[in-house]
């Protein structure tokens, strides 16, 4: 007699796929960055996806292709960020809530359980809460909250596919100094995407904002040293002039040797930054005597440039959605 007290699996079960770790012919290597240092990855953004929410948006990054533009094997494929954001509100606060003169913003970021190689739990962990705090501070600067007293707005982001710091074969919590230096980049680039998608969703919801706030990431990287440079670097300090390089929108899968990264939430039309988060050590500039601008300045600037570039995508997405709205409102369009 069958066991009735348990929920049993189907009769004909399947075994989960197991991938060979070192298949012949494949070198499990990091991908190298195919685009220029000043180029960001391509984005895809769509607004108004979720009908039940006041505003919503979907954002994804184009996955980086393999060396010859061919995607590698499945297990090897680097993650590409995919985010959905729903905005609920502005809605009246419950009667039990105390009076607020401004719009009460609350942001939630949750990784889907399948968003990363390491399965995520259903309860929000510290990283997710940290990201939510950063997102909240980025968004609070753009909302004109005074126009919505006694109201609240919930920004809910689900990370469908997250960026990860490591490949499958690499140890997750490595003590290797080289690796651990670029750890945390995934989170940064998720935050940048979250800021952009949340801003788009808020605008889609029709909540009063001063501007789009767009996320941008930049990193300080050391390109692989040529022999000549190596010789030079032995003589001089570790960071001679022009050895380090600043990359816009680094993908964690493509870089292993990053020293510092920076994410900004940037308002282009006001030239304001609502969120700035820097991790790592910025190297000194080669000629240390007259530091007009530190590397940090340059890094921040590049992050802002990345945001400016991403902004165009957001603007295009809204142009498209507005076009549709106008078309569907005009009576002669059937």
């Amino acid at each position: 007699m069958a066991d009735r007290r348990r929920v049993n699996g189907p009769a004909g079960g399947t075994a989960p796929p197991v991938y060979a770790q070192q298949a012949a012919g494949f070198q499990n290597t990091r991908r190298s960055r195919m685009r220029g240092p000043n180029q960001i990855r391509k984005l895809f953004l769509k607004t108004g996806l979720t009908p039940s929410a006041s505003g919503s948006a979907y954002l994804e990054f184009e996955p980086s292709l393999g060396q010859n533009g061919v995607p590698g094997r499945l297990s090897d494929r680097p993650s590409a960020l995919k985010l959905t954001c729903t905005v609920h509100g502005p809605r009246p606060l419950p009667r039990s809530a105390p009076f607020t003169p401004q719009l009460l913003l609350s942001a939630h970021i949750k990784y889907a359980p399948f968003a990363s190689r390491q399965r995520k739990g259903y309860v929000r962990d510290a990283n997710e809460r940290d990201l939510a705090v950063h997102l909240e501070s980025a968004l609070r600067g753009v909302l004109i909250g005074e126009r919505w007293p006694k109201s609240g707005v919930d920004v809910v982001i689900t990370v469908l596919e997250g960026e990860e710091d490591c490949l499958e074969d690499e140890p997750f919590a490595s003590t290797d100094s080289e690796y651990s230096r670029s750890k945390g980049l995934g989170m940064m680039s998720v935050l940048s995407g979250c800021i952009t998608v949340a801003s788009a969703a808020i605008v889609d919801a029709g909540i009063d904002c001063v501007d789009f706030v767009i996320g941008g990431v930049a990193a300080v990287a050391r390109p692989p040293l040529t022999n000549k440079q190596k010789a030079k670097s032995r003589v001089k300090s570790d960071y001679a002039e022009s050895i380090w390089q600043i990359l816009m929108d680094p993908s964690p899968a493509e870089h292993e040797d990053l020293d510092a990264f920076c994410v900004v939430g940037y308002l282009q039309s006001r030239d304001e930054v609502t969120e700035l988060w820097v991790k790592g050590n910025t190297p000194n500039k080669g000629d240390s005597q007259d530091q007009e601008e530190t590397v940090l300045d340059v890094l921040t600037d590049r992050a802002v440039e990345a945001a400016i570039a991403a902004r165009h995508v957001v603007v295009e997405a809204f142009k498209e959605s507005n076009k549709f709205r106008i078309q569907s409102h005009s009576p002669d369009q059937g």
């Binding site: 180029q39 960001i40 990855r41 391509k42 984005l43 895809f44 953004l45 769509k46 996806l49 979907y58 994804e60 990054f61 184009e62 996955p63 590409a80 995919k82 469908l160 039309s269 030239d271 570039a309 991403a310 165009h312 995508v313 295009e316």
Partner: peptide, 27 residues
């Protein structure tokens, strides 16, 4: 205040991507 400079149409292209298979599915 920064002045918004006209962008150069030759060198600049909007980094807009086509939707992935997943996105096409949900859209």
């Amino acid at each position: 205040i920064i002045s918004e400079r006209k962008r150069d149409p030759e060198t600049f292209s909007i980094p807009i991507a086509l939707p992935s298979a997943f996105a096409r599915t949900i859209l």
